[in-house]
Computed example of a mutant assay.
Amino acid sequence: MAKRFGRRKGNFNDRSNQKPEYRVNEHIRVPEVRLVGDNLEDISTAIGQTLEPGTVYPTRTARDWARKAELDLVEISPNAKPPVVKIIDFNKFLYEKKKKEKEIKAKAAKTVVKEIRFGPNTDDHDFEFKLRHAKGFLEDGAKVKAYVHFRGRTIVFKERGELLLLKFIKELEEYGAAEALPKMEGRRMIVMISPKKKKKN
């Protein structure tokens, strides 16, 4: 029994609302195309003719087959000679492509960076308070950008600021590691601490 392809609403040639990223149906104007796809067996059954993957066919003929199967002729490799096409549901193809791009974006999620600010005269209580916050950030997988801000004449206390940041790095050894030693950027001495990768069970 021939596989039935669902009928799509709208005119076969009406693709004006789609982005011109791919040439489709009547917009494919080359004389010949190379037909590929893992659905050619189903399409062969639907049109009553055996289609061989990778074979070159006249474009008009391939377009007729797509119309019979109630699908679209879509050019996927325009620079090939001849161009490579598939007979597929173009709307479904675009949906799957968009879905895949979303998944890739989600996997490459941006790293969160949390800032912790010190003064060169930060006392022990304030230091411990900020240290607890930093531990929480690193455990959550965020990076910590710690810096000592030197206002006015406090710029003469650079060494004090450096010692404070080095102590901060040491206290966080179990949670993260500094990407580099503290360095001056304008009136700030900065260090970036990356979270340690959690061991997989």
Rank of each mutant, 00 (worst) to 15 (best):
M1V: 02
V36R: 00
A178P: 11
A66N: 07
P182R: 07
N91L: 06
G176W: 06
S16A: 14
A180Y: 12
G10K: 12
L94V: 01
R151G: 10
A69Q: 00
L71I: 04
R160F: 04
K199D: 12
F137V: 03
L172Q: 11
T55K: 14
T59P: 05
R23E: 11
L138W: 05
E52M: 07
P31G: 13
V191I: 01
K100G: 02
A142L: 07
K135G: 04
F168M: 02
E173F: 03
V74Y: 05
A46F: 00
R132P: 01
A66L: 09
T55W: 10
G141I: 11
S16T: 15
L166I: 02
A134M: 09
G176A: 03
K143I: 01
G54H: 07
V191E: 02
K135P: 02
K86Y: 04
K130P: 03
Q18L: 15
F5R: 09
L71V: 03
P182L: 08
N39I: 12
I116E: 07
E26P: 07
G176C: 10
A108L: 15
K105F: 11
P83G: 06
D124V: 08
S77A: 15
N201V: 10
I116H: 01
A109D: 13
F150W: 14
K167M: 01
L181K: 12
E101A: 15
L71T: 02
N121V: 03
V33S: 07
K197M: 04
I47W: 00
K92V: 01
K86S: 01
E115L: 02
F118E: 07
I47H: 05
R63K: 09
R187P: 10
V156R: 08
I43K: 09
R188P: 04
G10H: 09
E179I: 12
Y22M: 07
P78K: 09
L164P: 15
G37M: 04
D38H: 13
K86N: 03
K130W: 00
W65H: 14
I47K: 06
G152I: 11
A142Q: 11
L181G: 12
T154D: 15
I76L: 10
F157V: 02
Q49L: 13
F12T: 10
D123T: 01
N25I: 00
P120C: 02
T111C: 06
